[in-house]
Design a binder for these strands. Structure first.
Ligand SMILES: Nc1nc2c(ncn2[C@H]2C[C@H](O)[C@@H](COP(=O)(O)OP(=O)(O)OP(=O)(O)O)O2)c(=O)[nH]1
Ligand SMILES: [Mg+2]
Ligand SMILES: [Mg+2]
Length: 466
DNA sequence: GCCGTTTTCGGCCCGACTGTTTTCAGTCG
């Protein structure tokens, strides 16, 4: 059973327990579900190698849950979940995935109307049967119907690269709204997660209500999920949900910390604050009534006795202990990049000259840049042959003599022929500083032939990079 | 149900928005 399926079972249990108003256990199962989902190894494998004991070692998993995981892995079933399902046979995961529908709503819908699936719910709402239920009304029935229409368009997480440009555009539009002093991207986008559920934006503004009006009126907004003075949520035409919080400047750091998350990181930070006699929320770090930090994230972490934790690490995976002990890892930042070993110029299919590329690399703060134009069998790029490469090497020598602060390396992106030989002779390759080799043709060779081809290319003593 | 450099028992993050509610529960961030 895959981790997502194990997590799903625990989520179901959390929802069932929530229905019954069981205290604390729902949180425990939800926390465990999250831990399982984001665990970097299949739990089946963990169990195979270390048994129940190894499962128990995962934070958030104790004796009871480890036993349930063992049961799930061995039998594919969980007796407790089956028991709950027998009592209330509902598609709890899909139903609670509907915006605004939680365990308590599912309970009423099932008990009073026999709703088991999303289709049942849609039929009941259309028939106007939902409005007369206890704790429901005309408006909530309407809300459910609207949310149902969006079940298809939302849901799936999107790659960061897809979401980031959209988010930056919205953030830019917000920054131009009058009275807005500051806009920040928060949430999983700021933590640079690989996939993004929704976008979270933070703003500092003197007139929050005007900002909220502008926000919900932005062109790409197709639906307003909620709108208040400090928090609003919308959906864009693309299906992306965007949440906006507006806070005063003295709370900016605390709010950025809160809204950046992750949730697990927030809970752990807040627990630490309690232990130190403080209270932490999105408005600041408080001792009694007095705010002792809040304007910047740095002062929040400092007053909690922690080193500043970069957003990318805020997942409650040990970073708080490391920050306390001063043993946080140094992240690889953009400025750690020393050089670029693959570039093309106007000698082949690139747009700029060698000198322009060198100057651009220098501006980027690089120490070196390799010029690696394509080689002859890529005819459409006017790929280099030996003579052209020799000529280019001379030009690079002259350029290096002239330019300071950047070293231009002589290179090539050499074609791997069908048989694994290279399309530039060894003598010329030997004169280059860096040789990349790449397949640009015959992409569909049988696996064995392709492998032999690549290995032969790599065996060329001048090949540095595949 | 989980957890622990102050605890193996007694705590468990904190607040915004909505709708139905007569004072707050449910859902969500
Ligand atoms: N303290 C606290 N903060 C929360 C809670 N839920 C969410 N947050 C904070 C931390 C989250 O990173 C932030 C944004 O919430 P989201 O639901 O958008 O989560 P996030 O962006 O981390 O992931 P996503 O990619 O949207 O699924 O709000 C909570 O229950 N308690
Ligand atoms: Mg988000
Ligand atoms: Mg969000």
């Amino acid at each position: 059973m895959r981790n997502v399926e194990l997590a799903r079972c625990f989520r179901d249990l959390a929802a069932y327990l929530e229905m019954e108003d069981v205290p604390f256990k729902p949180r425990a199962y939800e926390k465990a579900a999250l831990a399982i989902e984001s665990y970097d190894r299949p739990l089946e494998e963990v169990y195979r190698q270390g048994g129940v004991k190894a499962l128990r070692a995962i934070p958030g998993i104790g004796a009871s849950m480890a036993d349930k995981l063992e049961e799930l892995i061995k039998t594919g079933k969980c007796a407790l979940r089956e028991q709950y399902y027998a009592r209330m046979p509902v598609d709890i995961a899909t139903l609670t995935a509907i915006e605004g529908v939680g365990p308590k709503a599912v309970k009423v819908l099932h008990e009073k109307l026999g709703v088991r699936t999303v289709e049942d719910l849609e039929a009941a709402a259309r028939a106007g049967k939902v409005r007369s239920l206890p704790h429901f009304g005309e408006r909530s029935e309407e809300k459910i119907l609207k949310a149902l229409a969006f079940v298809q368009t939302s849901g799936a997480r999107q790659p960061l690269a897809v979401t980031l440009p959209l988010v930056e555009q919205i953030a830019g539009a917000l920054a131009r709204v009058p009275s807005v002093e500051q806009v920040a991207i928060a949430g999983s986008v700021r933590r640079r997660k690989e996939t993004i559920g929704d976008a979270d934006l933070l703003a500092v503004a003197r007139k929050p209500d005007a900002v909220m009006r502008a926000f919900v009126g932005l062109p790409p907004v197709t639906r307003v999920l909620g709108q208040g003075d400090t928090k609003s949520s919308v959906k864009l035409a693309s299906g992306l949900q965007v949440d906006l919080r507006v806070v005063p400047a003295e709370s900016f750091g605390a709010a950025l910390c809160y809204f950046t998350g992750s949730k697990a990181h927030n809970v752990a930070l807040r627990q630490l604050a309690i232990k130190r006699g403080y209270k932490l929320n999105e408005y600041g770090l408080f001792r009694g009534e007095r705010r002792i930090a809040g304007r910047t994230e740095e002062e929040i972490y400092a007053r909690l006795g922690l080193a500043y934790i970069p957003p990318e690490l805020r997942e409650d995976q040990g970073e708080i202990d490391a920050a306390r002990a001063g043993t946080l890892p140094r992240l690889i930042e953009a400025d750690a990049l020393r050089g670029d070993l693959q570039t093309q110029t106007d000698w082949t299919d690139g747009a700029d000259s060698i000198e322009e590329m060198a100057r651009a690399a220098k501006t980027l703060g690089l120490e070196y840049v390799a010029i690696t134009d394509h080689t002859r069998s890529l005819a459409m790029t006017r790929g280099s042959d030996e003579a052209k490469l020799r000529k280019q090497m001379l030009e690079i020598d002259r350029l290096n003599a002239r330019l300071g602060g950047i070293r231009v390396l002589k290179g090539a992106e050499v074609n791997i022929n069908k048989d694994g030989t290279l399309d530039i002779d060894d003598e010329t390759l030997a004169a280059l500083d860096v040789v990349g080799v790449a397949v640009h043709s015959y992409f569909n060779l049988p696996r064995a032939e392709m492998t032999a081809r690549i290995i032969r290319a790599m065996r060329n003593p001048h090949a540095d990079i595949l």
